[in-house]
Amino acid sequence: MKRLKSIAAYVFLVIAALISIYPFFWMVVSMTNRSVDVTGGRQLPGTYLMENLNNLFGQVDMVTALGNSTLVAVISTLLTMLLTSLAGYGFHVYRSRRKDIVFNVLLLSMMIPFAAIMIPLYRLFGRISQVAPWIGIDTLAAAFLPTLTTAFFIFFFRQNTGMFPEELIEASRLDGLSETGIFFRIYIPTMKTTYAAAAIIAFMNSWNNFLWPLIVLQSPAKKTVPLLISNLGSSYAPDYGMIMSAITIATLPTVFVFFLMQKHFVAGMTGSVKG
């Protein structure tokens, strides 16, 4: 009976796995087919991989877009983690009733959809452009500045700081470490796993971000990968083989970052923080 149950479970899981992996399979297969074959629903690998890649790198500036996306994603991930973990740490460690009110207001900001603040934000960046053109409209900095400190990550770090033993802070203070020293030398190394989880999410958010970069980045040299892919599908006769190649390439970094961080992620789950 027990065995029968586990067989059923495996069958179910295998089917679920196949269903979820199928779109990826089709994406990779379509990368090797002509556009006509892709629209025709061909499921087998073809021989047009090189042609699709040549078209992609020949017709559009994929290299620049990848460079822009990487630059934006890496810098914004690093800054996001530094700023939001400082805030989350502060809200938890130096807790007071007033700070809790501020924190609750901050949480409320999660309820506001981005589309609602988009136009005022664009206006703001229009003004910024006049005094500080290097971070104004049509700069890569403008693409990630508004998304650096989100309530979600501050909340995430504040909650996880609960796992951080207060005794460590007290011990460090007794030993004469300054408050910033405690954060950088005790807190960050201890909370590695939390940072890893946050980094995966922050990187994915930034890598896949579309709407705001679309509005704020205008010149072709500033395009990020999602913007470039959006363009590829815009013609009256789209080249699906080429589009699938671009999408496959665009997926790789996220996969890479996930597997890179997964080790820490898993380590965090098995409990590395000792009381």
Partner: peptide
């Protein structure tokens, strides 16, 4: 920050 804004302005 300014570094990622790159070389701009000459375009428009």
């Amino acid at each position: 920050l300014p570094a990622c804004s790159g070389k701009k302005t000459e375009t428009n």
